[in-house]
Design a binder for these strands. Structure first.
Ligand SMILES: [Zn+2]
Ligand SMILES: [Zn+2]
Ligand SMILES: [Zn+2]
Ligand SMILES: [Zn+2]
Lengths: 178, 178
DNA sequence: CTCAACCCTAAAGTCAACAACAAGGTTGAG
DNA sequence: CTCAACCTTGTTGTTGACTTTAGGGTTGAG
């Protein structure tokens, strides 16, 4: 588990010199080791120090960077975006707030774009579901299928007539549209 | 992207028994010929009639089905979903409204799930952008980058002191956080 | 006849973000 | 010493919805 020094002793004494193997870093960040190697391959993580055995040994800075990546992912940035963000982050003083904020706002606009797309879908779909009775009768005149087939939703909400509801307990087609 | 309900597009080629070549169908539906062949390959479109030359000749029913697919896509169904929907559609009377509505409601829940995910991202990201000044100064103390690096947003909105704004016209770091 | 604009098939490539595999070397507990 | 649990590299597979490529045949206007 531990390298030259016992991990507990080290962590209590000083966190700064602690070097993690890939599995430990994975556990610490909640991602898989494959993901960490993938991030390295993609240039999101700088190649960490290696031991004589070839193992990767990660510094606390590496750990921080993984957290950076995960936080950026959590707010909607793609890995490609994050690569860009990291290039800003590593040399902050040679970039401006404007550059950073522009990226964030562009991403915000992207997110809002996708949200309104989904909102449009939701409205259309909920109109469809509202019009369908959802009963155990034949879908022959189902308003959902009809709307998809014919391109228009017949806004008349479905109301089986009492007679039909009484009689058509199963599989009877309901002809009034559903 | 596309209109959900566009009734006028349908009625044009329906009256005549005209058979469309793939390019014509593509133009009529707004998808590429490759996409049409792809849909056929995926079983979403039944293999159309062929001429002696091997060309596909599409019936108006085929056109209807493409529209069905596009409308279902527009409300958020995947192609796999649509395959299922089509199997309900082609034999409506052997299925129930319940089956259809269940699918639609499941898809609706999926859409709402994705929307709330995006809403979460938007909140987090807009908190970040609100706190950043977006000015032409060095990003050394940029609140966005700091929040990503340190995992917390310092809610203090950025206010350059008047002195600094006057003096730091370009590239000066602003130390009070941005 | 020529030539562009169509059409055909089957297979491979694209994108994102990993996951899975093969075929090994290393470590540490029992 | 054995054995599981790590670690290594490199390659391939996954998902969805196409797009592109390669290598042809067909049509119709000039
Ligand atoms: Zn129905
Ligand atoms: Zn009904
Ligand atoms: Zn800033
Ligand atoms: Zn600032």
């Amino acid at each position: 588990m531990s390298q030259l020094f016992s991990p507990e002793a080290i962590s209590t004494a000083r966190a700064s010199g602690k070097r993690l193997r890939i599995g430990e870093l994975a556990k610490a960040t909640g991602v898989t080791v494959e993901t960490l190697r993938y991030y390295e391959h993609q240039g999101l993580l700088t190649a960490p120090a290696r031991g004589d055995n070839g193992y990767r040994y990660y510094s606390p800075e590496n750990l921080e960077r993984v957290h950076f990546i995960l936080r950026a992912k959590a707010v909607g940035f793609t890995l490609k975006d994050i690569e860009e963000l990291l290039s800003l982050e590593v040399q902050r003083e040679s970039h401006t707030c404007q550059e950073v904020k522009d990226m964030a706002e562009a991403k915000l606009a992207e997110i809002e774009q996708r949200m309104s797309e989904l909102a449009r879908m939701r409205e259309a779909l909920s109109t469809l579901t509202d019009a369908c009775c959802g009963g155990p009768m034949s879908a022959e005149h189902c308003t959902i299928l009809s709307a998809l087939a014919e391109g228009e939703v017949h806004a008349e909400h479905h109301h089986h007539s009492p007679d039909m509801e009484a009689l058509a307990q199963k599989r009877d087609s309901h002809s009034s549209g559903c």
